[in-house]
Structures are given as C-alpha cells and as structure tokens.
C-alpha cells in the first residue's frame, strides 16, 4: 500500500511538473513575432535569398597550423624528462626540430595562410 502511495505521489509530482512547464512555455516563451517583424534588418529591404548558405570557414588554415604546432609539445614532454640525462645533445636535437617547424611557419606565412581573407 505504501508503495502504491509513493508511486501515486511520483505520478502526481510528474503531472504537476508537466503542468508547470506547460504554463511557463505558454507565458514565457520567446515571441517570434509577425512575419514582417521577423525579417532581418538590412535598412529597409527584405533579403532576397535564404540565409541557409555555405560559407568559407576562414579560420581553418589557422586551426590546422595550430594543430601542427600543438603536436610539437607532445614531443617536448618526453624530451623534458630525459633532458638532464642527455644534456647538450638533447638541446641540439630540439633546436633542430624547432628550426624545421619554424621553416614551416615561414612557408605558411609566405603562402598568406595567416591572413584572414
């Protein structure tokens, strides 16, 4: 009997929650407005084409560059661990590695990959 009472309480509680949610939706929902109000603002004209369009994600080259240089850190962690043991050889190797990567940056720069448009 107690179990039935608990189930009834949960049911009533859920019903109440749905009621409250419905009331909130009816009273607080964002008013989409009338058709003329929804038109995007262009200074007095309506747009002639739909805004559903594919456009150039211009940051993708920068994102790729970032990824490449982010990966170099993966090499730097184990290098930092063995740096004391290996000494100057490790330092020279890392300088060479970073110099090669820097050439990559210079190349990307020359190819105007760092410019927005």
């Amino acid at each position: 009997m107690a179990a039935l009472g608990a189930a009834l309480a949960v049911f009533l509680g859920a019903l109440g929650a749905v009621g409250v949610a419905r009331w909130l939706e009816g009273n607080l929902r964002y008013d989409r407005g009338t058709a003329p109000r929804r038109v995007p603002f262009l200074g007095g004209h309506a747009p002639s084409t739909h805004a559903w369009s594919r456009y150039h994600v211009r940051y993708y080259t920068m994102a790729l560059l970032f990824l490449a240089f982010d990966m170099e850190m993966v090499f730097m962690y184990p290098w930092a661990v063995v740096f004391v043991e290996e000494g100057a050889v490790a330092l020279a190797e890392m300088v060479m590695f970073i110099a090669i990567l820097l050439l990559g940056i210079l190349y990307a720069w020359r190819e105007r990959a760092l410019e927005w448009a």
Partner: peptide
C-alpha cells in the same frame, strides 16, 4: 526566399553567395 546561388571557385571551394540590398 530561394536558396543562395553557388558562386565560382574561391580557394578551391565552391561556396554560396548572399545577395543583400542594404539601405536606404
């Protein structure tokens, strides 16, 4: 509103152009 037209090749990608009349 019709969907935007496809524009010519730009950076190896064919993308859409938006036609907008701005003003007055």
């Amino acid at each position: 509103r019709p969907l935007p037209q496809r524009s010519g090749d730009r950076d190896g990608l064919e993308l859409d152009v938006l036609d907008l009349r701005v003003g007055p």
